[in-house]
Structure formats: C-alpha cells, structure tokens
Design a protein around this nucleic acid. Structure first.
Lengths: 230, 230
DNA sequence: GGATGCGGGAGAGCGCTGCTCTCTTCTGTG
DNA sequence: CACAGAAGAGAGCAGCGCTCTCCCGCATCC
C-alpha cells in the first residue's frame, strides 16, 4: 500500500508528515483557530496551493491533528495504566484520570480541539472513533478487572433507565453489569467536566489546589462506579 | 448616565442593541467562529467601519454576547428553580440541572461560546464573572436550604484536601460544611461534563435515551453532594 | 442665532485568510 | 524511451478584522 511504488510514495508520506508536524507546532503555539494553511506552507518553503495536494482542505488537516491528539492522549492513558498495573482498582482509576488531566494541562490547545466546542460546522468523521475510544477502553478495562477480581459493588439503577443501560452494556461491555456500565459512562463524561473546567478557566478564583481537588474528585468517581475503596 | 443627554444617547444604546441582536442571530445560526463584523454591519445597512464606534473589536462584541448568554442560562436556571420551590432538595437540584441541559440543547452555539474551548488568545474579562456565577449560586442555594432544613449528609473529605476545602468554603458559602462545598464544586463541574459530552457529540453511538440518562446521572450527583434521596 | 466641536457614518485600503485554476516541470513506470 | 500523472508555482477571487481619513450634521455654548 504505502510502500507500494517506492520513492514517489515515500516522498509523499514524508511531506505529509512534515505538514502535520508544522501544523501541530502552530496548533500548540496558537490554537486551532489560528492554524493557517498559508503559514504552514510558508514555513515549509512551499506555496500554499501546493499544500492542497496533501490535504484537500483546512478541515482535513485539522481532522488529522484531531486523530493524532486522541492517540497521544490514549497512549498517555494506556502508559499510565500499564505502570500502575499492580495497584488497586481505585488507584489505577485515579492514576489514569490524573494522566488524562496531565495530558490536558500539557496540551491545552490539543485538548480544546478534541473536547472543546467542535469547530463550527465541522463534524468529526468516523475515522476519529477508534482513536477517541482509547481512554474509555482503559477505564472499562480497569472496571472489568475489578469485576473479575475481588468484586465490584453495583451502583443503583432505576427501572426507567434499564432499557438504555442494557443497550449501552451490549455495545460497550456485555460482560459487565448494566449498573456498572451506566455509572461508568456517566463518570467518563464527568471526568472531562472536571478537566475542562480547570483547563478553560472556570476554576479561576474558585479552586486553587487543583491537583488535590482533582484526585479526590476522581476517587469519588471511582467509588461511584463501584470500585472498592483503596 | 444613559439618559443624560437624551436623544443622542438613546440612539446610541438602540444601535448598540441592534448590533448585539444581529450578532446573536449570526451566532445562533453559524457559531462564534463565523460571526463576522462585516456581515453584521451589512445586515444593519451600515458600513463595517461604523460598527467600530460601538464595539472596539470583534472580541468586545463576543464578550457582550458571552455575558448575555450567561445571563440567559442563569435566568433559565433561576426560573426553573423558582417553579420547583416546593419540591424536595433532590428534585429541585435535578430540575435545575435539567434546565441547564435544556438551555444548552436549545442554544448550542451560545453554550459552546461560554463553556466550550475559549476563543484562542482570548481570556474572559472580569465583567463576565457575575453573570457566570448565577447557575452556581442557584445550586448553592438548594444545598443551603437543605442544610437549614431537614439536613444534609456530609460527604467524606480526606485530610489533605481540608485546607483547600476551607478556602473554597470561605469564598463560596461560609455557612456550609466544607465537605459539602467541596462536593458541590466537583458536581458543578461534572454537570457540565455531562452536558458537554451530549452536546458536542461524544455520546453519539453511546447513549441514546439521553434525557433519562441525564436525569439519573444528576440525581446521583445530588446524592453525592449529600442531598437526601427524594 | 450663529459659530464650533464632536459623535458617528462612509469609503478606501492594508494584510491576512481559505481555496481554485491554470501552467509548467519533473519523474517513475509501462 | 516516451509519456501520463504527480506535484509545485503563481495569479487571482472573495472574504475577513481593523485603521485612517474625510465629511456631514446635530447639540452645545457664547
């Protein structure tokens, strides 16, 4: 595929990568809205129209960066989980959440790109789904291990939510109780509420010791999913 | 002040309002990024440079819209709370959260403007703080009433978070226990995680019956703050 | 009541953007 | 080796935020 016809294709993938790298540099520096195709081209010593041979539009370039960002965050979460493999479920959960927060604080513009308001008029293509799922899969993995292991308490689940819970469970983790899956999905969203509020300044003049606050909040999230207290 | 010199000043406030109205129309239609000073001016039958007599920059216009959006959301939350004044604390909490969600779903671009990624390079001026606080104040009010009334269970609070909890409590609600205030701040952020994930498409292919899911999630949030089960 | 100062609208223009189209060069392949 | 197709260059279009200069007319003050 990519190495099929040799030199030509290799040059293409190299230049594509160079464009993405320079684009990422600008994204990191100034945010997505200021990412300019012309500036990227200029920096690479090419003319702007040439860049369209590689990315048909600015949005396509952004999509590539979105996927990379999801992957970067996912890797970070997976790595954090790997290192904490022997810890208690709650400790592993907390570690992964803290990795997400650390990544977000270290990559604010990339975080904003993937979890902030979507670029207007832009809807993420399905291409992004696998990369976007990685953090969620890590969290599911932690809960699954706890479920197989010493156990997991099941959160309450009202009757009217049972159909939806069943649907989600079938899609996400058929081996887990629907009570758990439902709580997990909610906690997953809530985690990003905590991160987003810190990152986007909503905690200014409200929370100061954000690290401690965050750790405690995600520990309570873990308990809410039914993970045993450490 | 505003009515000081009569006609002149009145014309000015009228035109300022007209500009904001047209700008909001464009914001609602296409989102903040596509809001164009020139288009607003065009629609109002004036030339773009004239608009700068009223708003010194696009960011200033956006700031005005941000404040309006916070106020609109705050009003909605306050109104919802008012109508549910006689209900149980948990029911009032849930009602207010649902009002926030409903407002967000009805005003996606305005929600994105205030709770999505901040416009790059843009930091909200302090002018926005009072308007931005309104929803939080409603939530605090519900908890405060429960605290004065039949009671409130206090969530756990680890020792290392006690200093920060004390700080937050002094700033936000000195009459409430720090355990409660800490949980409240976390729940406040988590609420916006739930809303944001639904609004920005993260729940696509994951949660279908979002209304039921949301209600259950915020009920659990209420319990997490220590409000009595309804 | 007439001179005056200033608020506010008009217009041109600068430098930037995304994107398109055409022309040309170069290169890997049949 | 010839040639198709890939890829870069350049000009150009329409839009943007913002500035500056000009000018009109209304409200004020003597």
């Amino acid at each position: 595929m990519s190495t099929a016809h040799g030199a030509r294709a290799r040059a293409r993938t190299e230049i594509t990568a160079a464009i993405k790298d320079e684009a990422r540099r600008q994204l990191v520096a100034d945010g997505a809205a200021k990412l300019s195709l012309r500036a990227v081209a200029r920096e690479l010593g090419m003319v702007s129209s040439a860049l369209y041979r590689y990315f048909p539009s600015r949005d396509d370039l952004l999509t590539a960066l979105i996927i990379d960002a999801y992957d970067s965050l996912g890797e970070r979460a997976e790595a954090a989980h790997g290192k904490a493999a022997d810890a208690s479920p709650v400790a592993r959960w907390t570690t992964v959440c803290e990795a997400v927060r650390a990544w977000a604080l270290g990559h604010p513009h990339e975080y904003a790109l993937i979890y902030g308001s979507p670029v207007p008029g832009y809807t993420a293509p399905d291409t992004t789904v696998p990369a976007a799922s990685r953090v969620g899969l890590v969290l599911i993995g932690i809960v699954r291990a706890a479920h197989r292991g010493p156990g997991l308490t099941e959160p309450p689940l009202p009757a009217e939510l049972r159909p939806e819970a069943g649907r989600m469970t079938a899609d996400l983790a058929p081996d887990l109780p629907p009570e758990t899956v439902t709580a997990l999905v909610a906690s997953w969203a809530q985690l990003y509420g905590l991160v987003g509020f810190e990152l986007f300044g909503q905690f200014n003049r409200v929370v100061e010791d954000r690290e401690t606050f965050f750790r405690h909040a995600v520990e309570r999230l873990a308990h809410g999913v039914g993970l045993r207290a450490a």
